[in-house]
């Protein structure tokens, strides 16, 4: 019985959780893949719906029973595929939702990741944004629910926020369709790499920094050009099984150097 309990969690051996197949999307010719991350209750799905309209379908993440929404829109003659990641507070723990979100940003290699944040609870939401920065520099921060913030008497300095974070920041009120064009524009800039982003990275606690100093060069020599060696080191130190497996099987560098090739569209319907 206890075995079943253990197995129903996240087992180590199951191939379904294999990061290499963690839900890649075929980018197709000239298409861009955009991931939508964010805390729960930030109006993330409203942003998703506002961007894609009726061009969406839901499925499941491969091997998981978590609903996965996918949609598309065109902006300036390019096709953008939008993946709605599960809403999470963090990417550090081992719940199914967090694993899916993290694996997609890491292994699915979206051209751009949009972190949808709640303007009325910015500090909580920026925590997630900072974690995403560690994984990928190709990020747009979308400060949503601006109407709500106005009602609460909050004023948010978007320029300053953008400067501090080092990535494009767009203010939206998706329910009122405010700021959507700006958002699409920012996504396009990041996806097409017209703008070099240098996202803010939190300094590590002192004791950990020493370990990172040693590990990061090792990882970089193993997988040159890896954008997130520091994050990989973090995860290894904390004992993240997926990242460890990726290092062991040497898929880490390959996955991140080239565009993913596996196709697993629309989940497993």
């Amino acid at each position: 019985m206890v075995w079943k309990l253990f197995n129903s969690g996240h087992c180590a051996e199951c191939t379904e959780c294999d990061p290499g197949h963690g839900g890649n999307v075929d980018p197709g010719q000239g298409d861009y893949v955009v991931a939508l991350a964010g805390n729960p209750n930030t109006g993330k799905s409203t942003v998703f719906n506002a961007l894609t309209g009726m061009n969406q379908h839901t499925g499941n993440w491969p091997g998981k029973t978590v609903t996965r929404a996918e949609g598309r829109y065109t902006y300036q003659d390019s096709l953008y595929k939008l993946i709605d990641l599960p809403g999470t507070y963090s990417l550090l723990s081992a719940s199914t939702d967090e694993e899916i979100a993290r694996d997609f940003i890491l292994f699915g290699k979206p051209h751009c990741t949009v972190v949808v944040t709640d303007a009325t609870a910015l500090q909580r939401n920026l925590n997630l944004a900072l974690q995403v920065f560690e994984i990928t520099p190709r990020v747009v921060v979308c400060v949503n629910l601006m109407d709500e913030a106005r009602r609460k008497g909050l004023k948010i300095d978007i320029h300053r926020l953008s400067e501090d974070l080092g990535v494009p920041v767009v203010a939206t009120a998706a329910r009122r369709k405010e700021g959507l064009v700006d958002l699409q524009n920012a996504i396009a800039e990041v996806a097409q790499q017209q703008r070099k982003a240098k996202p803010y990275t939190s300094p590590a606690p002192l004791a950990i920094q020493k370990a990172l100093d040693e590990l990061v060069p090792m990882i970089q020599s193993m997988a040159p050009g890896l954008p997130n060696a520091r994050w990989v080191a973090y995860r290894l130190l904390e004992g993240d099984i997926h990242v460890r497996q990726a290092v062991q099987s040497d898929t880490l560098g390959k996955q991140l150097q080239y565009h993913h090739v596996t196709v697993n569209r629309g989940g497993n319907r």
Partner: peptide, 16 residues
């Protein structure tokens, strides 16, 4: 560390 940073950054740009 992450939360402290997030809070510092948010405090700089949010005004009541």
């Amino acid at each position: 560390t992450l939360y402290d940073d997030a809070r510092r950054i948010a405090d700089r740009s949010v005004r009541h």
